[in-house]
């Protein structure tokens, strides 16, 4: 008796988001109609993309092995960005504007904006920019940055439930995409999306950050939250139909298993975490080590039949 393989089919796709200046290099994510890499069940028109993280000042908290590939540019974020673009073949960069934070020396906001603008001019790649995490500083920084990058159609974040209005308003005016942040909770993720939408912001221009973790630190919970969220999207919930961005580099390189047992284990930790995130439905993965990023890119290419 032949065994019939049951195939789940859904009608509602994940939103497609295309980041970057029209006419220049762009990156397209989302658009899938089924769970990752199950090509018999749904389409995956835009394979997941790896973004390279570029700190805007020397990242003192990165372990030595991770800093090694960037040894010649740790003090120069523009050079760092160019290296990612030219040497590592990055398609998109994620600038972390942490220099404004008091822990990193409280760089003046205008100067932080200027540095990001210089990166944009130097690499001509689509950009993701996230603030330093201090609401007050970020609310001063983001409007200025947004204006400075007008036309670049960047992805800016993070908009949280407690602090989304400034960022949403500024992205709305300057045509940028926005990262909606939530603390591993489907409901709160949806609530932030609704709140941003209530400001007149086009919810098709939102990318969700579900908050993730590193391998060994509760991945299964993160996985189930992302899966539930995605399932709701496939079932037609427009308020959860946004692509996911996850910051694997940041999550991985702070755990002892990645930091303290040599760079090879660290790279593998970053790779494994990323692969798990891909299976959970991540569309945009921000990574740190170029070797890890390269491996994950090859993995995606292998699974998607070498699309890229």
């Amino acid at each position: 008796m032949p065994v019939e393989i049951i195939k789940e089919r859904y009608n509602a796709p994940v939103n497609t988001v295309e980041i970057g200046r029209p006419g220049a290099k762009q990156v397209k994510i989302g658009g899938q109609t089924g769970f990752p890499f199950l090509f018999d069940e749904g389409k995956m028109p835009n394979p997941p993309v790896i973004a390279y993280e570029v700190p805007d000042c020397t990242p003192d908290d990165w372990p030595e092995g991770l800093l090694e590939p960037y040894h010649d540019c740790v003090k120069d974020p523009v050079k760092w960005a160019k290296k990612c673009a030219d040497e590592f073949g990055a398609e998109i960069l994620c600038v972390k504007a942490q220099s404004m934070h008091q822990d990193y020396g409280s760089r003046p906001v205008d100067e932080a904006v200027r540095i990001v603008r210089e990166i944009a001019d130097a690499v001509k790649l689509p950009l993701i920019v996230v603030g330093c995490g201090d609401d007050e500083r970020d609310n001063e920084f983001m409007p200025k940055l947004s204006q400075a990058l007008k036309g670049e159609n960047c992805l800016l974040g993070l908009a949280t439930q407690a602090n989304y209005k400034t960022l949403a308003a500024t992205c709305l005016v300057d045509g940028h995409f926005i990262i909606a942040d939530s603390p591993i909770d489907v409901n709160i993720a949806k609530q932030v999306n609704i709140l941003i939408g209530d400001m007149g912001f086009d919810t098709n221009k939102i990318v969700m950050h579900p908050t993730t973790t590193s391998l060994g630190y509760g991945m299964e919970y993160v996985y189930s939250i992302m899966e539930r969220s995605r399932l709701a999207a496939f079932m037609g919930d427009k308020m959860l139909a946004m692509p996911f961005i996850v910051f694997v580099g940041q999550e991985t390189w702070k755990v002892k298993e990645a930091k303290d047992f040599g760079v090879v284990q660290g790279i593998n930790w970053e790779i494994t975490t990323s692969v798990a995130m891909l299976q959970a439905g991540a569309d945009l993965i921000v990574m740190r080590h170029p070797d890890a990023a390269g491996s994950v890119k090859r993995y995606i290419a292998a699974l998607t039949g070498g699309v890229r």
Binding site: V186, N187, K190, M239
Partner: peptide, 15 residues
């Protein structure tokens, strides 16, 4: 708990 978090919104997360 899930129901509860979903209802911490006006009127509800699931409009």
């Amino acid at each position: 708990m899930d129901e509860y978090i979903a209802s911490l919104f006006f009127p509800h997360t699931d409009i």
